[in-house]
């Protein structure tokens, strides 16, 4: 069987097919094992040059990509372009042209403007991977979330997953929403109405106004980070009140008839959107998400570089799930 190609770039999950998403998850399976070896390196991307272009601060995502690239033997360069006096748009066009001129193979880009990854991908021949663009998408985060859910529950289809918190400003929420619905999960969002984007219900998701209702419904809670500036901009009155009304606490979770899997894309604000006892509790898979992040990113890099889909098939024969 020939597997579906991914195309040149990975800019988001909205326009991907379920088959393409499954291919990435299945390809990630064999890569998990690479990170468990004493010598964590395979030659898959030897001779490829990759630029990690981060216009926005990032620790976890950047390091995760860098490990993924290095474990595939690629040559990598990190560029952190923050706070230049040149306007962001001009920088992006010129950056695209300069990268093109240097004949690099792949670019991993994070940018504060929605659409920046597509913008870059349309202008250069290299593969472009979106590591987060504005409030638009963060596809590799959603892919690692999907992989983690599949590991934990053995399936995605039919599961009830609720994204909790600042959906309005969250690229993680948007990518999760597309990925989850495409793979057959039921998706809900929950948070204060000030942080719900307009028209979200038209995307086929349930909206819960109260966390208690969401907990009663969900198999999985993916708790989004609440940025401090949301309070400064007046979306919520205080972090204290946010915790009291929307904080995921053991007391609230106790009211669920079944154990709920707890996820968080990080970095966490303990005591704001999530209680430490929940984050560190038995049903938290937050660190599994981080581990899976490397494998998923290896899979994306490998497939975009033209890697064979058979890896995924082999993994499935070897007992991979779904």
């Amino acid at each position: 069987m020939t597997a579906p190609a991914l195309g040149k770039d990975l800019t988001g999950l909205e326009h991907m097919t379920p088959e393409q998403i499954r291919l990435i998850l299945d390809t990630a399976e064999p890569f998990k094992e690479v990170s468990e070896r004493p010598i964590k390196k395979v030659p898959a991307l030897r001779g490829k040059t990759i630029v990690n272009l981060f216009f926005e601060a990032s620790t976890r995502t950047r390091i995760s990509f860098e490990f993924a690239e290095k474990r595939l033997s690629a040559d990598t360069v990190n560029v952190a372009a923050t706070g230049s006096s040149v306007s962001k748009g001009e920088t992006l066009v010129d950056t695209a042209r300069n990268l093109e001129a240097m004949r690099i193979d792949m670019v991993v880009i994070r940018h504060p403007s929605s659409g920046a990854a597509e913008f870059l991908g349309d202008r250069i021949a290299s593969n472009v991977i979106n590591a987060g663009d504005g409030k638009h998408e963060h596809p590799t985060q959603a892919l690692l979330d999907l992989l983690t859910i599949r590991d934990k529950h053995g399936k995605i289809e039919g599961l009830k997953v609720c994204l909790v918190g600042d959906v309005l400003h969250s690229r993680v929420a948007r990518s999760n929403l597309w990925g989850l619905t495409k793979l057959g999960a039921e998706v809900a969002v929950c948070g204060p109405w000030t942080l719900m984007p307009r028209g979200i219900e038209e995307l086929g998701v349930t909206v819960f106004g109260r966390l208690e209702e969401a907990i009663e419904w969900a198999d999985v809670l993916n708790v989004l980070r609440l940025q401090l500036e949301r309070m400064e901009k007046g979306f919520i009155p205080s972090l204290r009140e946010y915790y009291r009304v929307f904080g995921v606490t053991p007391e609230r979770l106790e009211r669920s008839p079944k154990p709920i899997t707890i996820m968080h894309p990080g970095p966490m604000n303990r005591g704001v959107e999530i209680d430490s006892r929940v984050a560190d509790g038995p049903h938290s898979v937050i660190l599994d998400q981080v581990t899976n992040g490397v494998a998923v990113r290896m899979a994306v890099l490998y497939l975009l570089a033209g890697g064979r889909a058979e890896l995924a098939d082999a993994a499935k024969r070897g007992g991979g799930s779904e």
């Binding site: 909205e14 929605s114 659409g115 663009d133 504005g134 409030k135 638009h136 998408e137 690229r171 948007r174 984007p197 307009r198 028209g199 979200i200 038209e202 995307l203």
Partner: peptide, 15 residues
């Protein structure tokens, strides 16, 4: 415009 499309694109809307 603030609506379904702005929500999908992750762009800030003007109601």
């Amino acid at each position: 415009h603030e609506g379904l499309v702005s929500t999908r694109l992750g762009l800030k809307g003007i109601p």
